[in-house]
């Protein structure tokens, strides 16, 4: 017994160190996230010696290469919010309806065809979608609506919508799918049609999951870079129409970083822009996380 106790002790020590090792590795994600925040601030904060935070956020003019330069990212923020909002108008109904179709209506055979299609849509590289927007959608819009340029807010929003549909769809589908079967059966047994059951029972029961999906989809649209870089038009002005060219935050960063002198004002202004963009998506994600946590508890309680 003594000997086995000793070997037990060394084994326990080994098991404990393995556990600690795994914990350390699992912390890599938090570490990376922290490093991202630290380095964004390290490189971005110096700009606030030149302009105040208020001037930076609310300044209406983004002329980083003028003399003297102006670092106001308000038009870029508005552009980002505008493309995200317009994209959501398209992607939310499309994504949620597709999710409901997949989870509730489609036969299992159709499901097995449509689901991979949505996944493949998610897998399309953003640069390819941007490219498609440039060479196909832009000329089409330009000719159809007789515009100065087809590279504009609407085009970018349309492309972004198709990029965020898969996100919205797959998370909503999970939410809809996990509605307890009993609820659905109870409704059907009361003589409700399948549609009435979906609309009045299943959607309300999965609304927090769907909300999470929508928020994450919007976050994805907001942070998406290549599409807005290639098809939004690039004008750093506050848009007044759906067909104005715009310059959302990620587009500005991606387009200008290569030309910005290392550790110059422009360089740190772009990092500061990155902070703002990061803050927006972080906010979206924290809200989504909050909503989905509430949702998870409800799910467990109902089941």
């Amino acid at each position: 017994m003594k000997a086995s106790q000793r070997s037990g002790q060394s084994r326990r020590r080994k098991e404990k160190s393995i556990r600690i090792l795994f914990f350390a590795v699992a912390s890599a994600s938090i570490l990376t996230l922290s490093l991202i925040i630290i380095f964004l601030f390290m490189e971005g904060v110096p700009i606030f010696e030149k302009v105040s935070l208020k001037e930076f956020i609310l300044g209406k003019y983004w002329y980083p290469t003028y003399d003297p330069p102006e670092f106001g990212i308000f038009p870029l923020i508005v552009a980002s919010l505008a493309v995200t909002a317009v994209a959501s108008l398209i992607s939310i109904p499309l994504g949620v309806m597709t999710a409901a179709y997949l989870a509730e209506i489609a036969s299992s055979r159709l499901r097995e065809i449509v689901k991979p299609i949505v996944e493949l849509l998610a897998a399309l590289p953003s640069v390819v979608i941007g490219f498609f927007g440039m060479v196909v959608v832009a000329p089409f819009l330009q000719n159809t609506f007789n515009l100065a340029t087809g590279l504009n807010l609407f085009n970018a929003a349309l492309m972004l919508a198709f990029m965020s549909v898969p996100t919205i769809c797959s998370i909503s589908e999970d939410a809809i799918f996990s509605v307890p079967k009993e609820l659905k059966e109870a409704s059907l047994a009361l003589g409700a049609t399948h549609w009435e059951t979906i609309w009045r029972v299943i959607v309300p029961a999965s609304i927090s999951g769907i909300s999470t999906a929508v928020i994450l989809g919007m976050s994805r649209a907001m942070g998406e870079t290549m599409v807005v870089l290639m098809v939004a038009g690039g004008a750093g002005m506050i848009p007044t129409s759906l067909f104005d060219p715009v310059r959302p935050l990620p587009a500005s960063i991606a387009a200008e970083m290569a030309e910005a002198p290392f550790r110059g004002d422009h360089y740190s202004a772009l990092f500061a822009t990155g902070i703002v963009l990061f803050a927006f998506t972080l906010l979206f994600n924290l809200v989504a996380d909050h909503v989905s946590n509430k949702y998870r508890q409800v799910g467990a309680a109902t089941l």
Binding site: S4, Q5, S7, G8, Q9, R11, R12
Partner: peptide, 8 residues
Amino acid sequence: DPKVDVVS
């Protein structure tokens, strides 16, 4: 007993 090794 806390000394006991579960694995053994």
